[in-house]
Amino acid sequence: MSKEKKVSIRQAQKSDVEKLAALVVRLKKLNEEFDPLLKVRSDAYEVALKDYDEILTREDYLVLVCEYNSEVVGVLRAHVRERRYYEPRIEGVIEDFYIMPEHRRKRLGREMVKIASEELKKRGAGLIVAEFPFQNKIASDFYQKLGFRAVIGIFGREE
């Protein structure tokens, strides 16, 4: 008998932390491909465990997971930040966003951004922004398709 394939997007819980950390390390390693200044630290996994353990308790963070047949296959982390000089005064910043390769191209990413945006709006965000490596054309194309545009750039120089 074949199992029914079920997808769901929900807010993360403490029990998800290990899986979240693993996905986030994959994301950071993907980022590393785009620039040597994004070289992943050897303790990245431990950092992610601690980091996610903490932010799951905080009001200014939103962490969504995507489940496929009860297995976590995607993560989206967003931060509600105050903009001190600009209007709108509150922004929702997508800081980490990763979906396992075999679950891409199924519009799950689009759905996660939509749900995150709605939730962030409820928390006062007047705009949503996303952070990703400058050279990541796949991310840039993805967000542009959803109506995002480049707002701020971060340039780096190694010293």
Partner: peptide
């Protein structure tokens, strides 16, 4: 396999 660690690297290269 679909969960191998270097999969994103393969996607790009």
């Amino acid at each position: 396999h679909a969960e191998r660690e270097d999969l994103d690297q393969l996607m790009l290269k």
